[in-house]
Design a protein around this nucleic acid. Structure first.
Length: 556
RNA sequence: GCGCUCGUAGCUCAGUUGGAUAGAGCGGUGGUUUCCGGGGCCACGUCAUGCGGGGGUUCGAGUCCUCCCGAGCGCGCCA
């Protein structure tokens, strides 16, 4: 348990024991003690509203209850300097600062591990994200989903969860057939043979390029091939090339996956048939108009859904149900799906399927990633200037940089629409939050370099009680909040909790820096303590930025 | 028509299981420089008829319920 958690736990225990001592409630009717971190500094380090909650049970006015509790708290054992009863019955706790001195050595000892918590220990989470069809380049919407999903995974891991990152490849079905036809047409065209793309084909530059490479490598060998054989080839080839490109884009974007799960494999392994059989056995299917239906309305969906079409083929839903059945049988405690906003209508039927298969819907979460508007010169950018098509992930990486993208996509809650300001993202100025926080890190590194040149070091004994000025204490408190920020971000699946934390920590650092001097040769004892404080800030900033996939440069 | 999401300062957005005087950045104004990185810091104020509007639940509502308005998206035997 980290230091701040220890302090809070101790305080809660002390509050409970005070309530019991005052006979305000029996232990079995006691509500959970909530400690909050008041926004107003004048309200102390922690505050609890327990007196208001007890008003009904104890049948006394909240303020009187608060006074009775406050009087019975053992201040010394809970590191309390002062207790105040305020407002309608809040109890405000002002802590002594002695515990903060332990924070710096703890952070230095933990290093990269600082911020890790035990919250998710023993829980297996599977996160499925991006899962873009392998029929073209990743673009803007995928960029947001990838940034969010990857940061979420990193945060969950930091919070102790065992995380499995997965990309579902839709490598079966119509769209792959269309990909093959499109590639075939482009290949013929590359050889100077006229051939049209199918109406719902894919017109991307990527396919033109693949076809050109193929024409160079293979000449007209494929033209002479049997048509069915040829389409098979193009299906395989197109899929391979598209996935290769997607994987490269994601890797460059600092997004990693543990598993690339093939839809086709669900068919070949018999999992689709097995899932269908399970649904039939559970009595949630029926036949109508020559098709097989899933009675999803029995589980809250708007209408029933087709599983097997009249022509005997499956709908998209069917293998997806098999996929989720498979996820559950792999023993995950929680499944998180990150989907684009255009798929939100699909959520009720998938949830219905999860329930119909006999699983707890609470273990199935869908995070909807809202739309992104690219803004440039105050106007919406509809299409790429270069290609006239949708703006790709690759183009954005080249134009605004990975750090800015990862930060901007993580900094807003996923479920609200986002205006991505390209001008701001590329600006190297204080308007740009990602530069602001990276600058803080670079500045600290610069101080550390100078300290080391004077012989300071992280491991020597320093009198950390020297860190007692207002700015130092604020900075220490902010450093101590990191594990809690990780927990909250994981719990709410809210990446913006981390960007906000990093920003606050950077601000606390700059604010300290302007008032206090770290390296002062006239006062080596204070300098040593502050040097270690700076090292702790550097470690924490770096760890927090790492959760976002944003680099922590030592120089800028 | 139905459903989902959203509506908080001039702009872009935070706001933890309902809690005290609703915040941040940017934009604006004024300070700050013999100083470890001035890409910083500090202050001000706006500007919110108090969180789109009305009603309700509650000791207490931006947060929960309900109705209305507005925006986006979705409503296929497509994927």
């Amino acid at each position: 348990m980290n230091i701040v958690e220890q302090i809070k736990t101790r305080l809660k225990e002390e509050i409970v024991s005070a309530i019991l001592k005052a006979n305000l409630a029996e232990s079995d009717e006691l509500p959970a003690i909530v400690l909050e971190h008041p926004k107003e500094k004048a309200h102390g380090d922690y505050a609890t509203n327990i007196a208001m909650q007890l008003a009904r049970i104890a049948k006394k006015p909240p303020r009187q209850i608060a006074e009775e509790i406050a009087a019975r708290i053992d201040r010394d054992s809970a590191h309390i300097q002062k207790i105040e009863v305020a407002g309608p019955g809040f109890i405000n706790f002002f802590l002594t600062n002695d515990y903060l001195a332990n924070l710096v050595p703890a952070i230095l000892r933990l290093g990269d591990k600082y911020g890790e918590t035990q919250t998710g220990k023993g829980k297996k989470v599977q996160v499925e994200f991006v899962s873009a069809n392998p029929t073209g380049s990743l673009h803007l919407g995928h960029a947001r989903g990838a940034a969010y999903g990857d940061s979420l995974c990193r945060i969950l891991e930091k919070a102790g969860y065992e995380v499995h990152r997965e990309y579902y490849i839709n490598d079966a079905g119509n769209q792959i057939h269309n990909l093959a036809l499109s590639l075939e047409a482009r290949y013929f065209q590359a050889l100077g043979i006229e051939k049209n793309l199918p109406e719902d084909g894919y017109f991307g530059e990527d396919i033109v390029q693949f076809a050109r490479e193929l024409a160079e490598a293979e000449g007209d060998r494929l033209v002479k091939m049997d048509e069915e054989e040829r389409l098979d080839f193009f299906r395989q080839y197109g899929l391979e090339k598209e996935m290769e490109r997607i994987k490269q884009d994601l890797q460059d974007y600092r997004v990693e996956f543990d598993e690339w799960y093939s839809e086709t494999s669900l068919y070949t392994s018999g999992k689709v048939a097995a899932a269908l059989k399970k649904l039939e056995e559970r009595g949630v299917t029926y036949e109508k108009d020559g098709a097989l239906w899933f009675r999803s309305t029995a589980f809250g969906d708007d209408k029933d859904r087709v599983l097997i079409k009249q022509d005997g083929s499956y709908t998209y839903l069917t293998p997806d149900i098999a996929y989720h059945e498979d996820k559950f049988t792999r023993g995950f405690d929680l499944l998180i799906n990150v989907w684009g906003a255009d798929h939100h209508g699909y959520v009720p039927r998938m949830r219905a399927a999860v329930e119909a298969l006999g699983y707890d819907v609470e273990q199935f979460k869908v995070e909807i990633i809202q739309m992104v508007n690219l803004m440039q010169n105050g106007e919406k950018v509809k299409m790429s200037k270069r290609t006239g098509k949708a703006v790709t992930l690759r183009e954005l990486m080249e134009e605004v940089g990975i750090d800015a993208m990862r930060w901007f996509f993580a900094m807003r809650s996923a479920d609200s629409h986002l205006d991505f300001d390209m001008d701001l993202a590329v600006s190297q100025s204080n308007e740009n939050p990602v530069y602001y926080v990276q600058y803080a890190h670079a500045r600290v590194c610069s101080i550390l370099r100078q300290g080391r040149a004077l012989g300071y070091d992280d491991t020597e004994d320093a009198v950390l009680a020297k860190l007692s000025s207002e700015k130092e204490l604020e900075l220490l408190k902010k450093l101590g909040e990191f594990p809690q920020a990780v927990d909250e971000a994981a719990e709410r699946r809210a990446t913006q909790r981390i960007t906000n934390y990093v920003f606050e920590l950077a601000a606390a650092l700059h604010s300290f820096y302007n008032v206090e001097r770290v390296i002062d040769e006239a006062d080596p004892a204070t300098s040593k303590a502050r040097f270690q404080l700076m090292k702790a800030v550097q470690v924490t900033l770096k760890n927090a930025l790492h959760l976002l996939g944003v680099s922590a440069p030592e120089r800028m």
